[in-house]
Design a protein around this nucleic acid. Structure first.
Length: 429
RNA sequence: GGAGGGAUGGCAGAGCGGCCGAAUGCGAGGCUCUUGAAAAGCCUUGGGAGCGCAAGCUCCCCGUGGGUUCAAAUCCCACUCCCUCCGCCA
């Protein structure tokens, strides 16, 4: 969440910044009023509580001195003050809860560098790598779902039989490829990132820390009996791994990566991009993430983007990097770059990674802090993350890009070691 | 799933319902002494909220949330987590 102090220090600037994310000024105004009210109430309550404590101390003293009548009188007085305090505290508590909820629903401020814009249309293509529309032959202009069916490496019907549509089932070398991609991404980042295998079912508080709750509950799978949520990305458990802790500045940037399955209900996306692997409820992904200081954030952001690009480039896929405009930025994001891979079979750019800087928005929610080396007050960390590799769309682009005129798929050499030495897929295998 | 035990500051570990934000030890930082180091001695050492230009003042936090009480780290209840034993299992 954003720092409440922003609402006090410079309400107009905060409203203006959030307006770029299409937040109505009324909503910001409301939070500011709740904050003012809360401070007023807690100040009053504090004063009263101090009085109750002082009186109680005097009761004890009088008792010990044997002055029972005085003790009784003081006790009565304290009791009255206590009753008054209770109502005040109740009111303050209610306002506090409202404020917290309002604050949790306010999105992060967009970074100044983030381009203006209201929607996807206004996103800015930063660079395009390896894309040459004339380079693709008719054998590559076949969508991956057809290729997958032909080669029997993707069986959407049977996936649907088991779990419903948008739950893909990979078979034979298709399954191996899915796993190979994850292994490749992990290996390429193991030089700097510590591998974690986190739980994939988490508590509500964990989903709240990264911003999915309370606003986007409908997008996540919830297991009611145990009140656990299936993670939509490994960002969720990784961000909360050190929640509530105070790190030493020397530990930063703290780099983590994790392979995990990801679960998304895609509640708002019914009917969009539902063919094949373009949008699925369950998929595998390798996420890389860092906790760092504000001063480190920009370079770490570029580092993560560079690493995510490097794997795509190594796989020989055409891609472009798109900077997300303020109006299209996610709730928790301050600044974000998407990597989109070109799918020749669908003739579409597919988002395969979103590399984002969250400033201290998530850290505030998760209470992720660090102690500065040179002393002084504890500060919130900045958080950043991005997909090092998300399987289904990369899988789709690979199969289409590397399809041969004879219908087989000749995958790039870098996958050989991960494909039991055989990076080519032909029917019957 | 059943039966027990536990949760206190960076760590370890005390804590009759009032004098406890908390003894003591260790660790860490500063200073004194020393050519330097060690040793010794002295001092400091949690987080958060509010008011204030500041010095400072007030309040909250002893796993979390409720309750009892004039007063709760201390008593009661619920929850969470950890440990031990039994059961079950990969």
């Amino acid at each position: 969440m954003i720092d409440v102090r922003l609402l006090r220090a410079d309400l107009e600037a905060t409203k203006a910044a959030l307006a770029r994310k299409k937040v109505s000024p009324d909503e910001v105004e409301r939070a500011a009023h709740l904050d003012a009210r809360r401070r007023q109430l807690t100040a009053q309550a504090d004063q009263l509580r101090a009085r109750v404590k002082a009186l109680s101390r005097q009761v004890g003293e009088a008792r010990r001195a044997g002055e029972d009548a005085t003790a009784e009188a003081l006790s009565e007085e304290s009791k009255r003050a206590g009753a008054e305090l209770a109502t005040l505290e109740q009111e303050a508590g209610a306002v506090e809860a409202q404020l917290r909820d309002a604050l949790l629903r306010l999105p992060n401020l967009p970074a100044e560098e983030a381009p203006d814009g209201g929607s996807e249309e206004d996103n800015v293509v930063v660079r395009t790598v390896g894309y040459d529309p004339g380079r693709y032959g008719p054998h590559q202009r076949v969508p991956h779902w057809d290729i997958g069916a032909q080669l029997r490496i993707l069986d959407l019907e049977r996936g649907a039989k088991i779990a419903g549509s948008m739950f893909p089932l990979f078979r034979a070398q298709g399954a191996t490829l899915a796993r190979a991609l994850c292994q490749l991404a992990l290996d390429r980042n193991a030089d700097a990132y510590t591998e974690v295998r986190p739980p994939t079912l988490v508590r509500s508080s964990v989903l709240e820390a990264t911003g999915q709750l309370p606003k986007f509950a409908d997008d996540a799978y919830h297991i009611e009996r145990d009140d656990l949520w299936a993670i939509p990305t490994a960002e969720v458990p990784l961000t909360s791994m050190r929640a509530g802790e105070i790190l030493a500045e020397e530990e930063l940037p703290l780099r983590l990566m994790a392979y995990s399955p990801c679960y998304r209900r895609e509640a708002g996306a019914a009917g969009r991009d539902t063919r094949g692997l373009l949008r699925v409820h369950e998929f595998d992904k390798v996420e890389i993430l860092a906790l760092c200081t504000r001063a480190q954030a920009t370079s770490v952001h570029q580092e993560i983007l560079g690493r995510a690009e490097a794997v795509i480039a190594e796989l020989g896929l055409a891609y472009r990097v798109v900077e997300i405009c303020a109006g299209d930025l996610g709730q928790s994001h301050a600044r974000s770059f998407d990597i989109e891979v070109y799918s020749p079979g669908c003739d579409m750019w597919l988002e395969v990674s979103s590399v984002s800087w969250f400033s201290d928005y998530q850290a505030r929610r998760a209470s992720l802090r660090y102690r500065p080396t040179e002393g002084g007050a504890v500060r919130f960390c900045d958080t950043l993350n991005g997909s090092a590799l998300a399987v289904p769309r990369v899988w789709a682009a690979l199969v289409e890009t590397y399809r041969q005129p004879d219908g087989s798929v000749a995958l790039p050499e870098c996958l050989g070691p991960y494909m039991r030495g055989n990076p080519s897929i032909r029917s019957g295998s």
